[in-house]
């Protein structure tokens, strides 16, 4: 327990924790908002360019992060986004959107289209239909997408390592620097690792069913 106390009351731990929480929560909220809108737009409208956008999105889902590390560092320097939490949030939103759209698209398709048509006949505008009818019905999908996005934004450390400095570091970056800095202080390090591992595990316990639906989405009908 002493190790946990040392880690938690370390002066910089608080700052890294706050950084991680801001990045994790804000990135998740933005991803969910933009992701469900895009999924609805792709699933329920036909327009020129729809197919191109849909397939590009699907292909972007599997881009290896190592591939974009160098260009991201270069582009973010150009945009003055390095060493800022905003830069990290933008990146995590962008890399999580493809999966979120992919996942929610399936959930939108399962919403009975008759419900939306009935509302449209009653004079409901598309935005109202989206907010009042579609969103409440795809809540399980939103939960799954939230957990998967938060997991990446909270856990990721290679891009965060490249893009952050002393004041904008997230917890996983702090942990990775621990390894090389002072040899290896196993007690402290494992305490920190456990603290990082905890939040996604708690969410998974709370919504195991949604996580499983996210994992099997697309491949298994069910």
């Amino acid at each position: 327990m002493e190790n946990y106390r040392d880690v938690i009351f370390d002066s910089s731990f608080g700052r890294y924790l706050v950084n991680s929480l801001i990045v994790g929560i804000v990135a998740t909220l933005i991803t969910l908002l933009l992701g469900c809108m895009a999924a609805y737009g792709l699933a329920r409208f036909s327009f020129a360019g729809r197919k191109t956008i849909a397939y590009t999105t699907l292909m972007l889902r599997t881009v290896p992060l190592a591939v974009i590390a160098v260009p991201v560092f270069m582009i973010w320097s150009d945009w003055r986004l390095t060493n800022s939490l905003l830069g990290l949030i933008l990146l995590y939103v962008a890399v999580n959107l493809p999966f979120t759209i992919w996942l929610l698209y399936g959930f939108v398709l399962q919403v009975p289209v008759e419900l939306e048509e009935a509302a449209a006949i009653d004079g409901c505008r598309p935005w109202k239909i989206f907010l009042r009818i579609v969103l409440p019905l795809i809540r399980p999908g939103l939960a799954a997408a939230a957990i998967f996005t938060f997991r990446i934004a909270w856990n990721e450390f290679i891009l965060a390592l490249v893009l952050t400095d002393r004041s904008t570091r997230t917890l996983p970056v702090a942990a990775s620097l621990f390894v090389t800095d002072i040899g290896v202080e196993w007690g402290k390090l494992m305490a920190l690792a456990s603290l990082i591992a905890l939040p996604p595990l708690i969410f998974t316990f709370l919504a195991a069913r949604q996580v499983i639906s996210g994992l099997t989405a697309g491949a298994v009908k069910g």
Partner: peptide, 28 residues
Amino acid sequence: SNARTAWLFILPAVLIMAAACLYPVVSA
């Protein structure tokens, strides 16, 4: 109007993915 509404729904996500995911891949 249909197409315009569709673009309103998808444009924010498309812009962010294009700028912060596709553009880095192309740059790589």
